[in-house]
Design a protein around this nucleic acid. Sequence first.
DNA 1: ATGCCATTAGAGGGATCGCTCTAGGCATTC
DNA 2: GAATGCCTAGAGCGATCCCTCTAATGGCAT
Lengths: 204, 204
Amino acid sequence: MPPVDDSRTQLVRTMARLLRDQGYSATGLAQVLAESGVSNGSLYHHFPSGMEELAQAALEMSGQAIADALSRVLDDAPNTGEGIAVFLDIVEVSADGVCRGCPIAPTALESSISPRLRTAATRCFNQWEDLLAGRLRADGWPDDDIPGAASAALSLIEGALLLARVTGQISHVDNAKQAARALFAAAPAQQAPSKKVRKGRTPR
Amino acid sequence: MPPVDDSRTQLVRTMARLLRDQGYSATGLAQVLAESGVSNGSLYHHFPSGMEELAQAALEMSGQAIADALSRVLDDAPNTGEGIAVFLDIVEVSADGVCRGCPIAPTALESSISPRLRTAATRCFNQWEDLLAGRLRADGWPDDDIPGAASAALSLIEGALLLARVTGQISHVDNAKQAARALFAAAPAQQAPSKKVRKGRTPR
DNA sequence: ATGCCATTAGAGGGATCGCTCTAGGCATTC
DNA sequence: GAATGCCTAGAGCGATCCCTCTAATGGCAT
């Protein structure tokens, strides 16, 4: 196993950060090389097909890191809602208090990216959604409600990270935490009357 | 007032579509000109400072269009939750059934854009949030809860549009509709005990 | 020392980038 | 007809894009 600061690792880490901050098209090869301290030749040795291959590796690394963190906090939390809240606590802040947001979304939203990057991004979202679904199942949610609830939970998370990053106000993340607690604090009654409409709130 | 298909309008409409689909950095001047059928000279006549000025105009037009649609459906809906559901019905589909998503988000997530584009994007989100807050107030929500609830509502909307576009599954939008109904179907009790935790669900 | 292989350094190419610039079309007005 | 002002067409510039290529470096077993 090579050392953690070898060229390939440096490239992937730098690329992941740049993709998170500015997306794929805005990230130039020159910037990746300068900020990673790696030369042109090294990049095309480790990633023969160039930027695209590097970007895919970066997306997969970022996606797995998020999955690991999400899995851990969901396991430790008393329920899905609290788990989401703790997760948002972890990812919301950077060194200077600015929300860095989702590492996948900026790249995923560029429709001009290649299919390999698109599927890599989709796999990340699906993986996170599956983790949320698993926790909802452990909470005792009805099987029929789980996919929709997991989807809505991930929508709430992604939307909050997006708003927080764009506007610079991490209060959006705090508000999403409250909504997540309201929606996913406990499983709905299994045999609830079908027409009953539940209401929730978002305090603070 | 000039005709609707003059060069300037064509430029703004084309730019708005390209920004929605692929963001700012991925959108080249050549593509804008080709798809709008306008020549280079015309662009720099109407927008002397170039692409950036055009992009700002496009973001503002897209943001206002969303605001108009949102304002209309919120006015007609019985409550905020239903209004959000109808809004998501409107914006979710394109001609071929693929979700086109938010016209602002792809550009807004690029941290490398200029401050003028960043603030234009932030203004859009703030405007939409204010519309949601106004409808919540009309629903009788407590003043202290309104900002947080409006923020969470917009997070849910943006997240659902993001996931639907990236994964190609509009079910994410449908799931967000259910969550919006659960969270914002009716105002919480004004004098509710402060420690009470409300629970919600996402049916279907 | 020698050969071997993985890795790196850096020059340079062809294409494309956003943008500037000049010349001309086309109304409308004397 | 001539002049004016708005708008358009398109050539071309310097910069940057991603990438290819050759040469050299380093460690390591023999």
